[in-house]
Design a protein around this nucleic acid. Sequence first.
DNA 1: CTATTTAATTATCATTTGATAACCATAATA
DNA 2: TATTATGGTTATCAAATGATAATTAAATAG
Lengths: 142, 142
Amino acid sequence: MDKKALFDKWVAFTTSVHQVTHELTQNAKSDSITPVQYNILEYITVSQPVTPSEISDCQHISMPNTSRELKKLSEKNLIEKVSDSEDRRKQYIHLSKEGEMMMNEAFAIVESRFQSRLQHASKEDLADIERAMDILQTKLFY
Amino acid sequence: MDKKALFDKWVAFTTSVHQVTHELTQNAKSDSITPVQYNILEYITVSQPVTPSEISDCQHISMPNTSRELKKLSEKNLIEKVSDSEDRRKQYIHLSKEGEMMMNEAFAIVESRFQSRLQHASKEDLADIERAMDILQTKLFY
DNA sequence: CTATTTAATTATCATTTGATAACCATAATA
DNA sequence: TATTATGGTTATCAAATGATAATTAAATAG
């Protein structure tokens, strides 16, 4: 297979990934937050504690807009800010108890859909899937 | 590896896919169209000819909003509409010459970034990647 | 032939998101 | 100490997107 064909395959593959991700995650999030706010919470969940600058960088949201959304999340009592004692300009953000609960619920829904998608997979299938994800993670999506 | 761990790996994996996809595609699109319009054009590109209803379903955009965006794309001379001779309610949408050129440019940018990401990959690496994408495509992202 | 369904459009409104300028407080540097 | 750089905030505006109701035209079912 030449490189051009591999690119075409990559396009089809990422399209499928996006599609399935959408299927598994749709309506999993609470209605009280916007899609962008959910993305931010998701990022905080897996990376906490995290600074506003990091959120801004990784989620590709400008600092002013990041600040605005964090303020809204804070007003909804989903996150908490702690300022660094070393450098008092910095802030560390983590989920509040309420935020954790919300994200746990969302992830539970997604996981149950994920598991039911795999319910008919054999042990070998699961091993294949795991290996394939490892390979792509290290060789392509690093 | 238990199923819960596989789910966690899936979360990390899809995050990477989204991240890398963003890297490769950022600024590839012309400034004259919005992100949603680009997504629509991308979908038309790989699936043409396609009806507004199909776009609405697959891109998760309501019919009225789909119609609006298609109208804008049409006004920008990027797509053309042909009504079905059998069922005159239906429309088939395909890229115009101009639209094809625009998408070719965008895909060329993305592909060059993709190839440079793989420039140090060996023949075996490429084969591994291809196989891994096939496995995931058939067993997980179907 | 009438009623209903389907495919698409138009109009309108609210919300979300993106972009920019000005600003504050703290920290680092010259 | 004065200056500059960094991390973050506030305010404001414009544009993009999402949601809903009402409408048209064509096809299909009764």
